[in-house]
C-alpha cells in the first residue's frame, strides 16, 4: 500500500513538474517574443494556446491514472 501511495505522489508530482517546466518555457518565450515584436503578440498568444493544449495532455493522463490507483487500486490492497 505504501508503494502504491509513493507511485501516486510521483505520478502527480512529476506530472505537475513537467507541465510547470513546459509552461515556464512557453511563458518566457511569449514575453520575449512580445517584447521583440509587439505586433506579433496576439498571434503568439493564439499559437501558445494551441501548444499548451498539447503540452499538458500526457501529464493529465498521468494524473487520471494516479487518481485511479489512489481511489480504486489502493483501497483493494491489504493494509
Amino acid at each position: 500500500m505504501g508503494l502504491a501511495l509513493i507511485a501516486v505522489s510521483l505520478m502527480i508530482g512529476f506530472g505537475a513538474l513537467g507541465t510547470a517546466i513546459g509552461f515556464a518555457l512557453l511563458g518566457g518565450k511569449l514575453l520575449e517574443g512580445s517584447a521583440r515584436q509587439p505586433e506579433l503578440a496576439p498571434m503568439l498568444q493564439g499559437k501558445m494556446f494551441l501548444i499548451a493544449g498539447l503540452l499538458d495532455a500526457v501529464p493529465m493522463i498521468g494524473v487520471g491514472i494516479a487518481m485511479y490507483v489512489l481511489f480504486v487500486v489502493v483501497p483493494g490492497l491489504p493494509a
Binding site: 509552461f23 512557453l26 511563458g27 511569449l30 514575453l31 512580445s34 517584447a35 509587439p38 505586433e39 503578440a41 496576439p42 498568444q45 501558445m48 494556446f49 499548451a52
Partner: peptide, 17 residues
C-alpha cells in the same frame, strides 16, 4: 487564456496562462 490580449498586456497574458 483569452482574458487579456496584446503586447501591452504580455505580463497579464503569461500570468493568466
Amino acid at each position: 487564456v483569452f482574458r487579456f490580449s496584446g503586447a501591452a498586456y504580455a505580463r497579464e497574458v503569461a500570468r493568466s496562462f
